[in-house]
Structures are given as C-alpha cells and as structure tokens.
Nucleic acid binder design. Structure first.
Lengths: 217, 217
DNA sequence: CATTGTATGTACCGTTTCGTACATTAGCCA
DNA sequence: TGGCTAATGTACGAAACGGTACATACAATG
C-alpha cells in the first residue's frame, strides 16, 4: 500500500527528496556559517557545497537569514539533547560535579562548530537568537541538573551550600568555550596548541580540580 | 621658527592633519569591526563615521585588511600597556593572585570592544594576527607576572607549587572573556543580565574565590 | 612668496552577492 | 496512466561593495 519506491525507512537516492535537501542544506550551512561568520558566509558557497542549488535555500528557508536561524535552532536543539543524556544521580555529589564538568568539556571539544556558531551569534549581540521562540529557557535543564547535585551535596554536607547552580554552569562553560573559541589567539600568544591531546587532557583534569575545589565544603 | 599654526602641542583643528585622520580612522574602525565582524564591517560605513573619506583608508592603510590589521595591533598594544601597569610584588602571594584576577576582570568589562575584536579574530582562526610580527610573544608579560607571584607563594608555602602560570592565566582569561563575549547568548538562555552592576560584582568576587581556592596550598 | 610634495575630495569602475522570474521535471494519487 | 503539485534547475537582475583614477588644495620649506 505504501512503499512504492522507498524501501523500509532509509529511502536512498530519490532525485527529489525535500527532507534530504533540507537536511543537506542545513548541514553545510552550519559548517560555512561557523567557519566564516554570518556576513562572511556566502549563499552561493553554501549552495555549491551541496548537491542542490541556491534556489532551494530561498524555497525552504526564505533567504540567508532564515537559513541562519534554522542553523542556530538545530544546533541548540542538538546541544539540549546531549545534555539530557547526561545523568549524574547515581554518583556521589563530588564525583557528579567532576563528571558534569568533564563531560561538558568533552562535548565542547567534540563540537567546535557549535561553539564557533555561538561566537558568531554573540558578535551580532544575539539578535537572531532572540527571534527563535523555541529556544527560550533552553538553559534550564543544564541548570537544574547542577541544582540537583548541589542540593544533594548540601544535604550530605559534602558540598558548600552558598553557591548558585547557574554560577557553576557559567564557570564550566566559560572554561570549555574558551578552549575552543579562543584556541587560535591564545595559542598564538602563548605558543600553546590548545587542541593537542596531552594539553587537552591536562586542561580537562584542571577544570575538574577547580570545580571540585570550589564547591567542596 | 616653528609654530606657524600649531600652538604648543595639541594643535587644534587644522584642515589637514595626517595624525588626526589616521587616529580617527583607527578609532572608528575599531568600533565598526568589533560591532560587525570583519566581513560585516563596511568600508563605506567606517569612512562615513569619520570626518574624512574612504579614500584615506586606502591612502593610509592600503585597504580594508590593512586597516583591520592596524586595528588589531593597536588594540593588543593597549592591552599590553595596561598589563604592564599591573604591579603585585608588594602584596602577599594570596592577595596578589586575587588582585590580578580582579583587575583582569575589570579590564575586560571596561574594554568590551577589544574582547569582541578577539572573538572576531578567532572566527577567522587568527589568520590576521599571525601577520602582525610585532605581536609575537605578547603574552609573555602576563605569564611572567603570574609566574613571579606563584614562585613567591611556593617559596613561602602559601601557594601550591605544581601549577603552571599559563594555566592560571587561562582560567582567569576564560572566565573574564566569557562574561563579555558571551553575554548575549548566555544572558538570553539563563535570563541573566551579565552586565548589571550587582551581577558583575558577584562574578568578580567568585572569580577571586575560585583562583585563590585553586592555588592555595 | 613661490614651490613642491603631502594630504584630501569626487566620481567612477568592475565584481561580488543576495535574491528572483521563468521554465521544467519528478513523483504522488485518483 | 494521466494529470497535478511539490520540488528543482537556469539564467539573470539590481544593489552593495571594495577599490582606484584623477583632480586639487593645504602647508612646510627655502
């Protein structure tokens, strides 16, 4: 009844496939915007790097800005999903905060494109982000995860109780974001390759030490 | 013999003044580049915001990229000067590190344009920064200042001795840079105005606590 | 005060870049 | 299987943008 051309779920290589075209456009656009910034990105370049044409950008996203908004939304949505997969309730409070810090660290290093996108958006004062309604309160999950751990630590006396979860998150974020977003200039000024495996490993451990040290009662 | 038009030193309002034109161009360009990014900045807009014309950008800086390089160099030079005015050798090691952290914090908040410029440069992978020979090893002063304090602390037993000065500097920088560079997106996601005076004051104190806590033996 | 080179203004050019009008085809459904 | 619509390709246009040729006026110098 169904299934004329498409076999199972992964329909492969139809000439016309709205979903595939949209997805490919989005993927390539994410790369280009994060590499060149919003103004630096060229609509023609994005199109050339896909199997479709510029025409489709206007057909599906309305224009350059629409495409950028879609990229932002998709990127943040992916982050949210990653955060939701982060469980720490089976660990002792001290171990849990270190775990959260380290996983956040890894996540940032593994998704430099997203970090760069955030930098781009900040250059433009977050003016696009504000337009995407669906991203309101996207930070809440991350904060409440930390909040839970802090509460448990306070109760058990292992963690100090006078620290705000968002402040903790900011410390972790700032450290992780910097590693990726400022690797070029910091690396240049201090002759340090921030992405080298051994350097990365040390930074990771240091972050854990700092967070645990700060929060320990 | 001298002094036909110019009175004393601050010659005021000659119609032709190379220094003034150059300086004004540089100042406005710093603003525009930090507001719009490299690609987003328009040569015409920069010119319009000064009392001179686009022609002068090409006359003095060769072009858009030359102007951007000059902006970068001037901005980093200013930072270096600020750092050199930072003395901490009269303070006890623990107080010294807190002082350095807090002054760095203030400096970042007071010069958002520079921070944004660094972000812009990182989006472009520091490709321009590498072209400015005069900026090699610009990080050294900041690192050695911290290095001295750490050495004193290690000698007196007040600070732990197994921490690298550059790592300390990176912690401080990351925290300070994030405050300014990511104020828009972080503020939006967590509903927090990063630039509000009371928030700023708390962040400042927290940074000091973290650094001192980490380094204390 | 005449001369000369630095500094500046105007008008313009060629290219890039975002966006669109128009034509066309693939694939779903009756 | 034939028609209808969603999807796609091509070619082009208009404005923006970086850059430059040419003309000119100011100011230091002898």
């Amino acid at each position: 009844m169904v299934d004329t051309q498409r076999s199972a779920e992964k329909s492969d290589e139809r000439l016309r496939d709205a979903e595939r075209t949209r997805a490919e456009l989005l993927e390539v656009a994410t790369e280009v915007f994060s590499e060149q910034g919003y103004s630096g990105a060229r609509v023609d370049e994005i199109a050339e790097r896909t199997r479709t044409t510029k025409r489709m950008i206007y057909y599906y996203f309305g224009g350059k800005e629409g495409l950028y908004l879609a990229v932002l939304e998709a990127a943040y949505r992916r982050i949210r999903e990653a955060e939701q997969g982060l469980h720490a309730d089976h660990l002792a409070p001290v171990d849990a905060v270190r775990r959260i810090a380290e996983l956040t660290f890894d996540h940032h290093h593994d998704h430099p494109g997203f970090i760069r996108l955030v930098s781009v958006e900040n250059i433009h004062n977050g003016q696009h982000l504000g337009k995407v309604e669906s991203l309101r309160d996207l930070g809440t999950p991350a904060a409440s995860l930390l909040d839970d751990v802090l509460a448990r630590g306070r109760a058990s006396g292992e963690l100090r109780g006078d620290v705000d979860a968002v402040d903790v998150h900011m410390l972790i974020s700032s450290y992780c974001v910097f590693q990726v977003a400022n690797a070029a200039t910091f690396g240049f000024l201090f002759g340090r390759d921030m992405l080298a495996p051994d350097v990365r490993e040390r930074h990771r451990r240091i972050l854990g030490d700092i967070v645990v040290g700060w929060l320990s009662a």
